[in-house]
């Protein structure tokens, strides 16, 4: 009875044609979400001091970063005290404007939570920091974080 020939059983091959699509989707997701929000540095990448009592900075959107270090462009001199705000070298006076601008993007209730992170080269001078600190205090940006590497700084 050839009519009732036994059907050949067995798993049909699982189509893997859509696998690349899935993986590509993941790939795009990661490519898009991990934005490198680092502004291009106009100063030599600061070699941060190290400290052991560090706190992590949370809420990236509430952090504004000020870089202090040696400017790549030699017209600013070869001292380690150039201040970079956003994408230009500025003066301590411009810190005020920089912070006020950053505040525009933030809801009013969150303004007291805003943190200023200072990434300064360990060879820079405290005077520069003091200038920035006074400007920040003038406009009530009171949370400050001195960016450091983790590790002990003292050779015992």
């Amino acid at each position: 009875m050839s009519k009732f020939r036994k059907k050949k059983k067995g798993m049909p091959a699982l189509s893997t044609a859509s696998l690349p699509d899935i993986v590509f989707m993941l790939l795009f997701f990661f490519m898009v979400t991990t934005t490198m929000r680092e502004t291009s540095l106009l100063i030599d990448a600061p070699s941060l001091p190290s400290a052991s009592q560090v706190k992590k900075l949370e809420h990236k959107s509430l952090v504004s970063t000020i870089y202090v270090g040696k400017a790549k462009d030699t017209k600013y001199g070869d001292k380690y005290n150039s201040i970079q705000l956003n994408d230009k070298i500025g003066t301590p006076e411009m810190v005020t404007e920089f912070i006020l601008k950053a505040r525009e993007d933030v809801a009013e209730v969150e303004i007291p939570l805003m943190t200023t992170s200072i990434k300064a080269d360990k060879q820079s001078n405290v005077g520069t920091l003091t200038d920035i600190r006074l400007k920040l205090r003038d406009i009530n940006a009171l949370k400050l974080s001195l960016s450091t590497n983790t590790g002990s700084s003292i050779k015992k």
Binding site: V23, F30, T34, A51, L142, T148
Partner: peptide, 26 residues
């Protein structure tokens, strides 16, 4: 695609900023 995915996963280090926190006086 996996190769690319793994490359991006590995290279994008989410560098968490940490630092000595200070609270300025008013």
């Amino acid at each position: 695609a996996f190769l690319l995915l793994i490359f991006f996963l590995v290279t994008t280090t989410m560098n968490v900023d940490s630092g000595v926190s200070k609270k300025l006086a008013e």
